[in-house]
Each structure stands twice: as structure tokens, then as C-alpha cells.
Amino acid sequence: MGGLSVEQQGDILHLGVDGELTQQVVPAIRKQCDKLLEIGVFTHLVVDLSGVPFIDSSGIGLLVSINSRLKGGGKHMLLYRPSDQAVKTLDLVQLLDFFTIIHTEDELLTVVGS
């Protein structure tokens, strides 16, 4: 089972997820995210999914939940470098356009810069 890494650069909060994002780990990750989102001062949350080889509907539900919470507070969430499996699964449930998905560092700099 993986974990979370957190790094802040200015107004950008980077959240690195390591390992599968499934029913098994979602409750614990949700608790950690709740704390971060409560105390964090940021405009953009970048969720780095490059270390997530597999995501199921529980993991997707967590991402939706975080996204909704941030939108309500006028903040933005970006999904960064999702795996092929994550992209296929998000496509299957028609959420590719729901999230802002970034695949490269240049794209990321462009989006958060704007």
C-alpha cells in the first residue's frame, strides 16, 4: 500500500499519490486529504497520479469529492500524469472532460501560470 507526498510551491499544492487508488486505501487517503484541504492555503491542487498504476470507482469517487470541495472554495484541481489505465477508466465513466488533466510539465506550467 502506498501513500501521499505533499509539497507546496507558492500557491500550488502538489499532492503525490503512490500506489493503487482503490477501495482499500481511499478512506485513509480521504482523511489525510481532508486535513490538508482544511489547513492549506493554495489556489491550485495538483494531484500527481504518475505513481498510481490502477484506479477503480472508489478512487474516482475520491477525486470527484476533492474536486467538488475545491470548486466550492474557488480553488482548482488538476490531475497530473494519470496512467493509461486511469485515463481509460476515467473515459469509461465519461469524466475525462470533468477534470482538468495535464500530461506534461510544460502543460502544467502553462495552466497554473495562467
Partner: peptide, 19 residues
């Protein structure tokens, strides 16, 4: 049916049925 995009759960059977 597929749940609305803002739904935080309820996608499991939809995923299965589409695979």
C-alpha cells in the same frame, strides 16, 4: 445508468456492464 459526474459513488455496476 451512469451517475452524474458530481456523484462520489455509484459507478461500479456501470463500469462492469460496459466491459
Amino acid at each position: 445508468p451512469l451517475c452524474p459526474p458530481e456523484a462520489e459513488s455509484g459507478r461500479g455496476l456501470y463500469i462492469i456492464s460496459n466491459l
